[in-house]
Amino acid sequence: MEQLTADHVHVHHIDPVEEYEQSKFGMWLFLGTEILLFGGLFATYAIFRAKYPEMFHLDHLKLDWELGALNTIILIGSSMTMAIGVTASKKGNNKLLIIMLAITIICGLVFGFNKYLEYTAKFAHHIYPDTSIFFSLYFMMTGLHMLHVFIGLIVLLIIMILAIKGRYSASYNTHVEVGGLYWHLIDLIWIYLFPLLYLIG
């Protein structure tokens, strides 16, 4: 092989099926990392909830559980559309994939908008991260989660652009599957955050 093309040869040695398997496994490993990143906050929550049950009870009443429930419905819905998108992609239905990605992204944006409403309402009532341990947890947990939603949205947007450009087919859809896994993790974390913060604080 010629010297100068060597770098390109390098990348294309990888078989798409192997790449798919490797990427998927790699993403599962990364999700493990994410779980333990949030894990520090879950552990903090567990410790302080056991220590200060009254504070958690009184403070959690100040949260807007209806908005939280709405966001839960939106996020789980977006997880479903994402999953449908993955299947569509595997079946080679690129149009349905693009539609599903669009709906997922819109759901993510609505989720973010609701969070914005929620945060501003808290600030208006002079509730800040340093108000109490409970609100420290509330802001850190939902804030870190929100950061993940943003990252997820960027990932999905890139995938949607690539899908519009026709990069995916029934035989190549690694990004869709792997990006989908990340989006589902965001949903998974929220499934725990919602009851812990809004319902049983």
Binding site: F25, L31, G32, I35, L36, G39, A43, A46, I47
Partner: peptide
């Protein structure tokens, strides 16, 4: 192996919470 790496973090999380609680 995916199952192992999906479940092992949960075990570690329970360890973090459990053993820290024993202290606190």
């Amino acid at each position: 192996i995916t199952w192992v790496f999906a479940l092992y973090p949960l075990f570690l999380l329970s360890l973090l919470i459990g053993l820290t609680s024993i202290d606190v």
